[in-house]
Design a protein around this nucleic acid. Structure first.
Lengths: 236, 236
DNA sequence: TGAACGGACAGTGTATACACTGGAATGCAA
DNA sequence: TTGCATTCCAGTGTATACACTGTCCGTTCA
């Protein structure tokens, strides 16, 4: 939902900074999110901060503990498996829409993205991967399915990033992207469906990683300055 | 997400009343939701009302227009189709979990629900149908998939209810429920998957209805008193 | 020693007050 | 009558102030 187009509000930037900080693992799972600290970091009162927090809570990125305080969500390996599977299910469902609506121009854009990723190191690679999948979602022309998929992707992203870093499987992932691209270019919906369901190897790798640590690791990333300073302020 | 267990807050009841009023069609799509009116109806200030509104917005039940005001979401026929399909997709994915975890006691509970629905008139039937599906979701043991399915179901519910009323197909729907029940009792995951994807007849009926009117009709329902009085206050 | 009490404190929940904005209503001139 | 400027107002955004609650820690008493 494009909730972030409100008239003259300080809330959208707050929510977006928090989302980004969580997604990039700058704010670790379980970390308490103190309203006053966020307010201070963003230079506003607690009112818009609270509203941003409730938005994120409904998005599943944070939860309110028994103490009433907000915390970055913690995912058990089971949850990670489920969300990873869910995202594959939704993306594979989008395949038919993608092959239906993708124009040659769209394919060209995707090709550019995929080829640019061939040369990236793992850390920055995850950022591009994220964008690539969002673009696929957009092309599906199924806004609600895409919304659910994005939600699942946002929740798992900190863990996925860490797994990518550790397992260094971006070579494999890039091959996967090229296959996706070819299927779209060929208009082969069945093949695309199969590809987007997720290849077993990467799911197995992630599941293994999740079963052992289930915790995001520190990593470099392309970060907005406000998200970075917000995270710094909260982690201090 | 069980967001509604906050310490000592007036917000959860507000959000729940609004959800219910929207789900039951007491508040029509497009209806402006004036913060001050809701606050007055619930006997609180605008602050907790605003927070409830942002929660519902993230759930997709309301949107904020260009004027900055909140409105009950309006769904075009395309969106309805997509959401019905999405819900079917998610529920069919849950089939394996349901047959895995459902105990004989669970099946007995479901049987009681299904048999009770055989004798209900269409208006109240929808309420029980809603509960029945939530129970299926719970049994799936896939909380995040269930959450996405519930979300889709909440969004379409006002329209579904109206369609059920108009098309009076609850006989068919009840037969469907009995089949679902049998598949669970038999532990037949494949059959349950097929059933939960949605039978074409009902989807066709819904789609036809959506294509013509795409608007919920007035109807009787089992309503919480607070939701009813809230809706009355806002509709006055 | 150990356990119960109590007070400071950190943090959340929300009512009130005020600033801002967009649109509708009003009034005036041509 | 129409066009336009001005005023008003309904409604939102948010800062401030205060109430409440749970927790931690020191103190006191058995």
């Amino acid at each position: 939902m494009k909730l972030d187009q409100v008239r003259n509000s300080a809330r959208p930037p707050i929510a977006e900074s928090l989302r980004e900080a969580i997604r990039l693992g700058l704010l670790k799972p379980g970390k308490p999110l103190i309203q006053a600290s966020i307010a201070e970091a963003m230079g506003v009162s607690r009112i818009p901060v609270r509203e941003a927090l409730y938005t994120l809570a409904a998005e599943g990125l944070i939860t309110f503990g028994k103490d009433g305080g907000a915390h970055v969500i913690e995912l058990a390996p089971d949850n990670l498996d489920e969300l990873w599977m869910l995202r594959g299910l939704l993306e594979s469902h989008m395949a038919s829409g993608i092959v239906r609506t993708a124009t040659p121009a769209d394919v060209a854009v995707l090709r550019e993205m995929v080829e640019a990723m061939d040369d990236l190191e793992a850390t920055v690679w995850s950022d591009h991967n994220f964008t690539f999948h969002l673009e696929l979602h957009r092309l599906s022309d199924m806004p609600h399915v895409a919304d659910a998929a994005r939600r699942a992707m946002m929740m798992t992203e900190p863990y996925s990033r860490a797994a990518i870093n550790l397992l260094y499987m971006e070579g494999m992932a890039n091959a996967h992207h090229h296959q996706i691209l070819d299927a779209i270019a060929a208009g082969d919906g069945d093949e695309l469906t199969r590809l987007l369901l997720g290849h077993p190897a990467s799911r197995a790798a992630l599941a293994e990683y999740a079963a052992t640590t289930a915790r995001p690791a520190d990593q470099k990333a392309v970060v907005t300055e406000t998200a970075q300073s917000l995270a710094d302020h909260l982690n201090a």
